[in-house]
């Protein structure tokens, strides 16, 4: 694994290696010294063509906890606004000695193009490209799901996958790279993926996805999912052609207080532990998720944030500690 571009092409054993490494990384934030020397002297560039505070800060925290040097490049107010191309920007960063480039771009496939080019030797991490994928978000969701699933079953999370778990993803699937990355990754890890969305927010060709599609949230909840992942409704799409009004979306597709009472009855598999509620953030309280649901003990939303740093540490570690030449290594 030289780059992390998507979860569709992520092999099962690579996904488990990332999750198992992340599992150990979660302990770092509770230590006396919240830092590891692993990437000392390496440089990680956050190249963000789209606004994102949460993901950028999470990658920055991850790189810093591993002692890497971090450079933040945001397109706004930079040479990009003067018309510099992606190629020239990347070659400039390469000349400054970047070892990894974390890229977020509004164009689907931007990360893959960068990885396939000879513009830079750096490892490429996709931090969201258009409506294509957002692999680290799916990995942190998987870490959160695996922790809940394995602790409900009273075994350690290490080395386990999500076999037997039923995960429901609700909302704007068509525009969501988070949903796409999750569908592929959760499937790889053995979970059964359900999608619930209005027909206008489902992508063309969704019937070929490895997922079960519901056109009613209540019907999807009656299939007893082990986890419910609510996607954010993007403000610019509200009241547009996708659904009539925000209030109607909430009534039909939101995790309202009434639906929370249904979710409270759901259990993780055949255990007594309650089902999980996830949200990638930032939340629109009162739109796709009610305040009571967001603050319920079933909601793992803050755990997801913490797991985001751990997963990104794991990814940076595994990509930047790659074998550069074959060494005959003992013990």
């Amino acid at each position: 694994m030289k780059h992390l571009l998507d979860t569709q092409g992520l092999a099962y054993h690579d996904a488990l290696a990332i999750l198992d490494t992340a599992e150990e990384m979660t302990a770092v934030s509770s230590r006396q010294v919240k830092k590891l020397p692993t990437l000392r002297g390496r440089t990680v560039v956050n190249l963000f063509y789209e606004d994102s505070t949460r993901t950028r800060i999470s990658f920055e925290a991850a790189a810093k906890r591993l002692s890497a040097d971090v450079m933040n490049f945001s397109a706004k107010g930079s040479s990009v606004s003067k018309g510099e191309s992606l190629k020239d920007t990347v070659q400039t960063l390469d000349a400054m000695g970047a070892d990894a480039i974390v890229i977020r771009h509004s164009a689907s496939g931007a990360a893959a193009q960068l990885a396939a080019s000879d513009w830079s030797e750096a490892a490429v991490v996709n931090a969201g490209d258009g409506t294509h994928e957002h692999p680290t978000q799916a990995l942190l969701d998987a870490l959160t799901l695996r922790r809940g699933w394995s602790s409900a079953h009273l075994n350690g999370p290490r080395g386990t996958d999500l076999t037997g778990m039923k995960v429901l993803i609700v909302g704007d699937i068509v525009h969501s790279r988070v949903a796409r990355s999750n569908v592929w990754l959760l499937r790889t890890l053995g979970a059964e993926v359900h999608l619930a969305a209005p027909a206008t927010l489902l992508p063309y060709g969704v019937e070929s996805w490895p997922a079960i599609v519901h056109y009613s949230l209540d019907e999807a909840l009656s299939a007893a999912p082990d986890a419910v992942m609510m996607l954010r409704v993007q403000a610019e799409r509200m009241g547009g052609v996708f659904f009539p009004t925000a209030a109607e979306y909430t009534r039909r597709w939101g995790l309202t207080d009434e639906r929370l009472r249904v979710v409270e009855q759901l259990r993780l598999g055949d255990t007594d532990s309650p089902a999980l509620i996830l949200h990638p953030g930032p939340m629109n309280r009162g739109v796709e998720i009610s305040s009571a649901a967001a603050d319920s003990p079933q909601a793992k939303i803050l755990d997801q944030v913490a797991h985001g740093v751990a997963v990104r540490m794991a990814v940076l570690h595994l990509l930047l500690s790659q074998r550069q030449h074959d060494g005959n290594h003992d013990e």
């Binding site: 150990e24 020397p37 692993t38 570690h317 990509l319 500690s321 790659q322 074998r323 060494g327």
Partner: peptide, 16 residues
Amino acid sequence: MYRDDLRTSGARTPEP
């Protein structure tokens, strides 16, 4: 995560 040979011997999954 503290080894000095990570770059030459490749990434390994940390143990607990």
